[in-house]
């Protein structure tokens, strides 16, 4: 397991971070997003979409639960916001997406951890007290693939002064 803690100063910077992730993403990748309303989960996924070469805006799937986008790889943008029972998750046919040919980004993932693969990249976003636009973004990798991914991401960010 590896972890990485960052501070984003703006929605644009959160999107930029997402686009790095999107560029590094591979088929079968699972990104779990955790964070209070308004911390930038969808914003980060918009960046991931851009990194995957998707032209349209990825917008919130809170009500429709799953939205699909097609770029260099398919992006399955999933959201457990409205899920009340874990049983509902097992009935969504998620396997098709989780073990499919694309990248899965799952918002409010903590509502369904037991229905999700153990190996994943978990991204936790938090507000920073007394700041309107800053967020702390915490990455944790579980499994070899995500350890490597996080190492590559760290290397890329080192080249960008804004993350220091």
């Amino acid at each position: 397991m590896k972890s990485l803690k960052l501070r984003s100063h703006s929605p644009e910077q959160t999107q930029l971070l997402g686009s790095h992730l999107g560029e590094l993403a591979q088929q079968g990748d699972i990104f779990l997003l955790i964070g209070e309303l308004g911390t930038g989960k969808t914003c980060l996924v918009q960046g991931i979409a851009r990194g995957l070469g998707i032209k349209e805006y990825a917008f919130s799937p809170s009500f429709v639960i799953i939205r699909e986008y097609h770029g260099n790889l398919p992006l399955f943008h999933i959201d457990f916001y409205r899920i009340k029972h874990i049983e509902e998750i097992s009935d969504l046919g998620l396997e098709e997406y989780l073990y499919g040919n694309g990248v899965c980004a799952i918002e409010w993932a903590e509502k369904g951890t037991s229905a999700l693969p153990e190996e994943n990249l978990t991204i936790t976003l938090n507000y920073i007290p007394d700041s309107e636009t800053e967020r702390s973004i915490y990455f944790e990798s579980e499994g070899k693939r995500y350890l490597e991914l996080l190492e590559k991401l760290e290397l890329r960010l080192k080249r960008e002064k804004s993350w220091n």
Binding site: I65, R82, I83, K84, H85, E87, E88, D91, G93
Partner: peptide, 10 residues
């Protein structure tokens, strides 16, 4: 099974 899922195909 006693559960009526609200957002599921079932």
């Amino acid at each position: 099974g006693g559960i009526v899922p609200e957002v599921a195909s079932r």
